[in-house]
């Protein structure tokens, strides 16, 4: 069985550390990649497409980041979508913002699977993973 791949994009290092830790606790098999801004994440994905590296199945995407924020990432990702072919990527917005404007904006992106307000506890992460991977397997 293929190992699940998860991409964490957030400028909050503490968040990245903690989430990574929780995910490792949930399953040792999960391959986790982290980036501290959208730009790096997009560069990684385009690299994956170029090198034929399988894309992560799940992306936990923060909104508020330097250089390229979550929205910017989504816009760029949308441009790449035609070349994704059959690969399915579930993007979850994970943000500390409970701003209704952000939620509304998120609903306009069909690429987004879910909207999660921080803090993301272990249970929530488990729920997300279950939802994604149960669908697939």
């Amino acid at each position: 069985m293929k190992k699940p791949r998860i991409l964490l994009v957030d400028d909050d290092e503490v968040y990245l550390f903690v989430t990574k830790k929780i995910l490792s606790n949930l399953s040792e098999e999960i391959v986790i990649n982290t980036f501290t801004d959208g730009e790096q994440a997009i560069e990684y994905i385009s690299m994956c497409l170029k090198e034929n590296v399988p894309l992560p199945e799940v992306i936990l995407l923060d909104i508020n980041m330097p250089f390229l924020d979550g929205w910017g990432f989504l816009a760029e990702f949308k441009k790449m979508k035609p070349s994704l072919s059959s690969q399915n990527v579930d993007i979850f917005m994970v943000t500390s913002s409970d701003d209704p404007n952000d939620l509304k904006r998120a609903q306009n992106f069909e690429e987004i699977t879910g909207y999660v307000v921080k803090p993301v506890f272990e249970e929530k992460l488990a729920e997300i993973l279950t939802e994604v991977y149960n669908k697939k397997w």
Binding site: S97, D102, E122
Partner: peptide
């Protein structure tokens, strides 16, 4: 919403 809440949420999850 974005900047102030971030460390607080991080902290709460760490505490957890």
């Amino acid at each position: 919403a974005h900047n102030l809440k971030a460390p607080v949420t991080s902290m709460s999850i760490m505490v957890d």
